[in-house]
Design a protein around this nucleic acid. Structure first.
Length: 550
DNA sequence: CTCACCTGTCATGAG
DNA sequence: TACTCATGACAGGTG
């Protein structure tokens, strides 16, 4: 508790209020929180294959808990009565703490109220996960984290640029926070002990298989000389009594090391590191990203891969590269992170476009996909008649550029970048001092945004063209049928006229008489009409007769 | 697992 | 020359 990220004055003021039992209670809750906040939490959760959500399940390590916390060592309490039964959930711990320490009720941190968020953030803010820490500042950091964690590209970027991360740390990669922290502190765990106190390890062992623990040893590169002991001690909680290199899952920050104001700009955001790297090499913007007092030089945070890259490729270009490299580790890691990030993405990402999202998709000036599809939905000739239910999932992808813009701290909205006229756009750009990475990102955002609209319009036109052609085809078919009907009608009329003509002919012919009063034989004579209307009775010439005449 | 479909993105050419 | 637009092709997500 005393080592937590808590205001010392606050601690001092609270300290007399806590009895020994209270301290034990805090300790056990802290242990619970640590367990909950790490891999063990995921072990306590069952992934619902139907919904993709994590559902709580029973802890498998009750005996260890019983062992570690003997009932006679603590005051009988509802907490420990639960030890005999179901394991305490994070919410239960929080509720219990709230009952025990009313002060805790003032905490409004969304992360503290969300087990998953706390779990995923725990390695970086384990102290703040303890309610007594009452740290108000990390909310911004948490939000930034959640935004970054919702970006699979960024996670992969960190893994990529550090190479070994995705292959040598099977445990860590289950928690994206590890990938953020470990590679950026090369050699740290081999020299600086970040292991929690022994009781914590013991309790943790109860939650995590030992072989997993053994995998937490980081294969780190050489210790960079610029990591001084002081800075690292300020950065991380250390226990001098424990020299075992262990999982740096508890890189405790302290208030001394990270004043609130600086915590917001701490190297917690890898993307910021990108920008910073670019800035340092590019020669400007150094004031925008002041070095922390942690002793960490941004140069030293560069990964081996980064170190030999061209300066201009830093920052945004990396983001672009990630997107354009489907074959990179990105897909792998996306899968690896999918379990731990699914839930939080929907809960906390400010770019989440699910229910309650504030993303102004409706205000986008270009037509939304549903709009485009809606126009053609019933007319589409070659598609199945399927209900459209992808909008929510799709809209989250729409905000990728917004997330990139946020990462590079683009000072204006993506919609603005896309939809402004050239003059207004140039004016806007001139009003802000932007580095090369930001300019490149803005240009790409503008290009992609316009092309997206163009593609939507193009597809809309294509579908309309198909629909138009189909309508035209239908009209032509109708016209053809009508013509065929008309032709049949005329054929019928012609036939009728012919029949009438035949009847009339026969009637006229039957009334003709020769000089002897005999009727003419139709086989010997025929009636023919001249152009002036005169009728003549013409004898038929029989071939047989002509042949006989010859 | 496969397939069809949708959507974003890129490359390219035309204006 | 830079920019915009149109469009084919491709990749990835989804049902």
């Amino acid at each position: 508790f005393m080592e937590m990220d808590t205001d010392p004055e606050e601690v001092n003021s609270l300290w007399p209020l806590f009895s020994c039992q209270d301290m034990n209670l805090i300790d056990i809750l802290w242990r619970q929180d640590i367990d909950l906040g790490d891999k063990a939490l995921l072990e306590q959760l069952e992934l619902d294959e139907e919904t993709g959500e994590f559902m709580p399940c029973l802890l498998p390590s009750e005996p260890e808990l019983k062992e570690a916390y003997k009932p006679d060592s603590v005051t009988p309490n509802t907490i420990f009565s639960r030890v005999d039964g179901d394991a305490l959930s994070f919410d239960e711990c929080m509720q219990l703490l709230a009952e025990t320490f009313p002060l805790v009720e003032t905490i409004e941190s969304p992360v503290a109220q969300n087990p998953m968020l706390s779990a995923l953030l725990a390695p970086h803010k384990a102290p703040t996960a303890v309610p007594v820490s009452l740290a108000p500042a990390p909310v911004d950091v948490e939000q930034a984290w959640m935004e970054l964690l919702s970006l699979p590209e960024l996670q992969v970027d960190i893994l990529d640029q550090n190479g070994y991360a995705s292959t040598s740390m099977s445990l860590e990669v289950q928690d994206p926070n590890y990938s953020f922290y470990l590679p950026e502190l090369p050699g740290l765990v081999t020299n600086i002990d970040t292991t929690p106190p022994v009781p914590l390890i013991n309790s943790f062992k109860g939650m995590v298989p030992p072989d997993n623990l053994s995998q937490t040893t980081l294969k780190a590169p050489e210790l960079n000389a610029t990591y001084t002991t002081d800075s690292l001690c300020k950065l991380f909680y250390t226990d001098p009594s424990n020299t075992k290199p262990s999982s740096p899952m508890l890189p405790y920050t302290s208030n001394e090391a990270y004043p609130q104001e600086e915590v917001r700009h701490k190297p917690l955001e890898p993307s910021e590191i990108h920008v910073h790297q670019f800035s340092l090499t590019d020669g400007h913007m150094t004031t925008e990203f002041p070095d922390s007092d942690s002793g960490l030089s941004m140069d030293n945070v560069s990964s081996p891969r980064k170190s030999h890259q061209d300066d201009s490729s830093m920052g945004y270009s990396d983001l672009e590269e990630m997107d354009s490299n489907p074959g990179s580790n990105r897909s792998e890691c996306r899968e690896m992170f999918s379990l731990s990030l699914h839930g939080e993405e929907q809960q906390s990402s400010p770019y989440n476009t699910g229910p309650g999202s504030h993303l102004p998709t409706d205000s986008l000036p270009y037509p939304k996909s549903e709009l485009v599809e809606g126009n053609c939905h019933n007319q589409r000739p070659f598609t199945k008649d399927k209900p459209r239910r992808r909008s929510a999932g799709r809209q989250s992808r729409l905000s990728r550029d917004e997330q990139r813009a946020k990462v590079l701290e683009i000072p204006f909205a993506v919609e603005l970048i896309i939809n402004l006229s050239v003059d207004n756009f140039n004016e806007l750009m001139s009003k802000h001092q932007l580095n090369e990475a930001q300019l490149v990102l803005i240009r790409h955002i503008r290009r992609r945004g316009k092309n997206k609209v163009a593609a939507q319009n193009c597809r809309k036109r294509k579908m309309e063209s198909i629909s138009g052609l189909e309508g035209e085809l239908e009209a032509l078919c109708e016209k053809k049928a009508h013509l065929l009907w008309e032709s049949a009608q005329r054929d019928g009329s012609l036939k009728e006229l012919k029949e009438q003509l035949g009847s009339l002919y026969l009637e006229v012919f039957s009334r003709l008489r020769d000089e002897e009063g005999k009727p003419y034989s139709p086989s010997d004579y025929s009636l023919q009409q001249t152009s002036d209307g005169s009728m003549f009775l013409v004898p038929r010439v029989k071939k047989t007769l002509r042949g006989e005449d010859k």
